[in-house]
Design a protein around this nucleic acid. Structure first.
Length: 264
DNA sequence: GCGACAG
DNA sequence: ATCTTGTCGC
């Protein structure tokens, strides 16, 4: 599956490298951009290398998020994405597993290895894993109908978390499922599976705190792209019939870990 | 000014 | 994310 087939948005993904403030231009990753052939804008770098550039990228892509689409009510295939890091944090493996939405069986999968593409900065987390995740998506034989991301979507300081970024870049419906909160206020939902409470920032609803199993810690669900919050939660519940996390993330997690262990 | 802070 | 020991519970 080529980037073209994924319909990577034809937009500038990077930030401008020329700026007045020298201090803010310091590369976050020594050596600069790590990805070649990125669908960058005219004359612009392949990937942001500083915090200032990354913030600029988010600001530019944020308007491209589709908040209208309710999303597929009954997707045939759902993909889970996750990344595992080596102990030294020098190497990583990204995995995508595609499940049959009805049987929850893995019908396709792919792995890509690489290096973290950015320093870990809360709010800029996506820039670390995106290149490897897109590489893995490229290796699938068929595009999935929905992406379930390990991290937040709209529940982000600038309303553009990993799930939004991945959704915009691929054009696919995407939802974010975080294990811990990043932003927003919330109250613990009732103890039973399916119970939820709103994750809010003032009057703005960022997502939902959803209990996927009786008595277990809830997960944080937010819209990524081309999905409605109600539908997103329904999909997550359907994907988590027995465990706290959706089967999509569980299978992807196992795949990238074993891949990392086998140096594959 | 001092914490908090997806993975 | 990753490192860690035992422990509580089904």
């Amino acid at each position: 599956m080529e980037h073209g087939q994924l319909r990577i948005a034809d937009v500038a993904v990077s930030g401008r490298r020329d700026g007045p403030d020298i201090a803010e231009k310091e590369p976050v990753i020594p050596g600069g951009p790590v990805r070649e052939g990125w669908p960058d804008g005219a004359g612009e770098p392949a990937w942001p290398v500083s915090v200032a550039e990354a913030l600029g990228v988010q600001d530019r892509l944020r308007p491209l998020v589709d908040l209208v689409g309710p999303g597929p009510a009954a997707p045939a295939t759902v993909a889970g994405l996750d990344v595992a890091y080596a102990e030294d944090g020098d190497r990583l493996a990204a995995a995508v597993t595609v499940l049959d939405a009805r049987t929850l069986q893995v019908v396709d999968s792919a792995v890509a290895t690489g290096r973290p593409a950015f320093e870990y900065v809360p709010g800029l987390f996506a820039f670390r894993e995106l290149p490897a995740l897109l590489d893995a998506l490229d290796r699938l034989s068929t595009p999935p109908e929905l992406l379930v991301c390990d991290g937040h979507g709209l529940a982000h300081p600038r309303r553009f978390g990993l799930a939004c970024h991945l959704g915009v870049l691929t054009g696919l419906p995407a939802i974010g499922v975080g294990k811990t909160p990043l932003v927003g206020a919330w109250e613990p939902p009732a103890e039973h599976r399916g119970a939820w409470s709103s994750l809010v920032d003032g009057t703005e609803v960022l997502g939902r705190v959803l209990r996927t199993q009786d008595g277990v810690k809830p997960v944080f669900v937010s819209v990524g792209h081309r999905m409605g919050l109600e539908n997103a939660c329904a999909q997550v519940l359907a994907l988590a019939p027995h465990y706290r996390l959706p089967e999509t993330t569980r299978t992807a997690d196992r795949l990238c870990r074993t891949a990392l262990a086998n140096n594959v």
